[in-house]
Structure formats: C-alpha cells, structure tokens
Design a protein around this nucleic acid. Sequence first.
DNA 1: TCTGGGGTCCTAGGACCC
DNA 2: TCTGGGGTCCTAGGACCC
Length: 406
Amino acid sequence: MDTIVDRPERRLLHVDCDAFFVQVARLEDPEGAGKEDLLIVGGSPSGRGVVTSASYAAREYGVRSGMPTSQALRLCPKAVVAPVSRDAISLRSKAVRRVLEDLSPVVQAASVDEFYLDLSGMERLLDGEALAVSAERIRLRVLDETEVSVSIGGATQKLVAKLAANFAKPAGTHVVPPGSEAEFMRRFDLASIPGVGPALAKALSEKGLVRVEEAQRVEEEWWEKWFGTSRGQWLYRRIRGVDGSRVNPREPRKSISSERTFFADLSADEDLERRLMQLACSVGHTVRRSGLRARTVTVKLRDADFTTRQASRTVDEPIESDAALFRIARELLTELRRRRRRPARLLGVGVTNLEPMEGQVRQLGLFGDDARVESERDRQVARAVDDLNERFGDGAIVPARVVKPR
DNA sequence: TCTGGGGTCCTAGGACCC
DNA sequence: TCTGGGGTCCTAGGACCC
C-alpha cells in the first residue's frame, strides 16, 4: 500500500534539471555547439529523430521535446542540432544525485534529470528552516557543485511538488503550502497533470473538461461512472493534488531493452537477423553487467506503416547469454514476420522477469545440457566476450556469424 | 508532419490449479 | 448435465513518462 495517512504534512521537494540535455551539451562543448542560443539536442543517427531537449530560446519558436527534428527545424530554421553523449548525461546526473544525497536522507531518482527528496522529520536538524528556504539552499548548492541549473518545487505531495518545479522553471523554486494544493492545481489544464496523457486529455475534453478548475466542480460519482471506480477515484484525487505516493529511494529494475529505428526500412530477413543479433548482444551485456538473469524475452517490430507489434516468450529457467537470448528472439521475430510481412522500420529486443544472478543454484538438467535453453558453454562464451570488450573497448568483439539454431 | 529510446504500469483474456 | 469462484502466470496491447 502506497498511501500516506499517518503523516499528512510531508515536506517533499522535486528537483528538476532545466533543459538537462541542452545544459550538458553546453558544458561538454562550450566553444562549439554550446555557444548556440538556438540549440536542439536530439535526432538519432537514423536521421528520423525527434527532439530530446530544446534550449529555452528555441522553445519560444514552438520547439518541444518529442517533436520530429524535421518539424522543429521548420519552426526554427536557425537552430543548431547537436548530439550529446550518454556517458556525459549519466555522469552529470550522478553528480547531481550525489549532492542531493548529501543534503537529504531520502532521494529518489525518477529519471536522469528528476529527483524527489523527502525532508520530513528533519525539522529539528534544519533548525526549523522553511521548506522554501531549503529549496533555494539546495538549488544553489547543486549549481555550485555540479554547474547544473535546476528548478525545485515543494509540497506535501509528489504530484504537486513536480508541478511546482515546472512552474518555477527555469532556475527557480516554488513551494505550495500545506492545505493549498487544490487551489494551486486550479491554474493548470488537465493535460498538464502528470499521468494525463493525450488519450485521457482527449476523453476529458470530449466531456467538456479542459481546465482543472472546471474538473474540480465535477462530483466524485461522475468520475466513477465515467472512468470506473479505480480510475475515477484516481482522477478525482489527482485534480485536487492528492497522490499519496511515497519517495522511494531504490526500486529494482524490472526490464532491460534495446531498440533501433533504421536509417532506411529493412526488408531482407538476413538484414533483420543481423540487427537482431546486435540488439540481443547489447541487452545480454546489460543483463550480465547488472548481475541479473531473465526469464522472458520480447521482440518488438515496427513496420514501415508504423504498425507496432510484439511477441514474447517465457522460459522456465532464467538465461543470461547472448546466444540463448538470440535463439529465442529469432523464433519470435520469425513468428512476427510470418503474421505480417512488411518492410521494418524498427526492431527491438527486451527482457523482463529479471532475477538476481548471485546466490542462484543452477538445477542440474533433467535431460542433460543439450535440451536446455541455455548451455554452460553459452554462458562461458558470453562472459569471455564481456571480458574482451572490457579490455579492448565495447564493440571490439562482435559475433562472427549468426549462431546456428539448436 | 511523420513520428527516438529507455522505461513503468494497467488491462484483459486464457490456461491452469485448487 | 450444467456449472462455482479465486488465485497466479503468461501474453499482447496500450497509455504514459522523460
């Protein structure tokens, strides 16, 4: 149960990095792309990319993250599109997190650029410091130690703290006092509430509801009638700024995946299988590096017409090797292609049903190693490849051929 | 205008077990 | 002959977030 009843006046902060990818691009390349006022980060190498993050100047032209880069450049032709390395993103993100962990007992990383802090119970330690003062102190400390500009929202609820941080952007703080959550919510459109996406926003506007203010006047029974008990109640609470969820420091990873949109659509099975192999190896590597094994493999296929399908299979014993991953993935891909055969735009491999690798006792095969999904040799090969890649750099070792079916 | 890549969570039907 | 209900797991799809 995730509902808080015993502490109605929690002191929560939401720390949100301002245009994070743009900031990191500037820090990484201050003399080059970093100098551009109109800067867009994004666009995958496929050339079919979308905007990951746009500078505030570019946003004035209507550029938004998630927008196709081509469209962004039509809106803002003078903008410069730059890439930013994942390592740089990850290092900066960790740096911000370390500072926050120094300042707060409970820190949850909600994504690379968002963190929740719970300062409840620290009143005495902070000498009765007002939450707004704490927020500003933390903002300055992060900026000073990491060069990353953040905005911070404070409230009794995560949902409200997050909206308050958005409200304070850029480089600001905003605290919503206990008891004024519902009032604070009234300034927003329903579509800006986290959890209300395009589909739900459309359903709401078809009922004539666009503003939170209007929605707050609708009685609870109507919400339940329209959206069912659970979803209806969820909405009724949410538009009043109540979500009750806790700040959770560490949640175990539930899935690992890798997918690629091709530069040009692929039709040949051999081409798809080669890409599938690369994806399986990438996922396998992450699985092993994380000290995990997986029981369910999923293949995702997006056809040229953007129809997206997936197929998955669960095996009895968790696997970790590229070879086993690939064998299952290939069967799933074959099945998907049998059902519908179009040029493929995107291919993905993912695993779920993750289990920790350590402390696992491998059962001895009832039918011997050959009948198993994954053999001891498969695992040894995978580890050897990991070792070599670690020594000579990722990607130094690639499979010489497609592994034969068993 | 033509839609990335990494995730989480929810729903719903069917299999299977008790 | 027709007919239970609850729980768990698997699969597929979809909404949503950054």
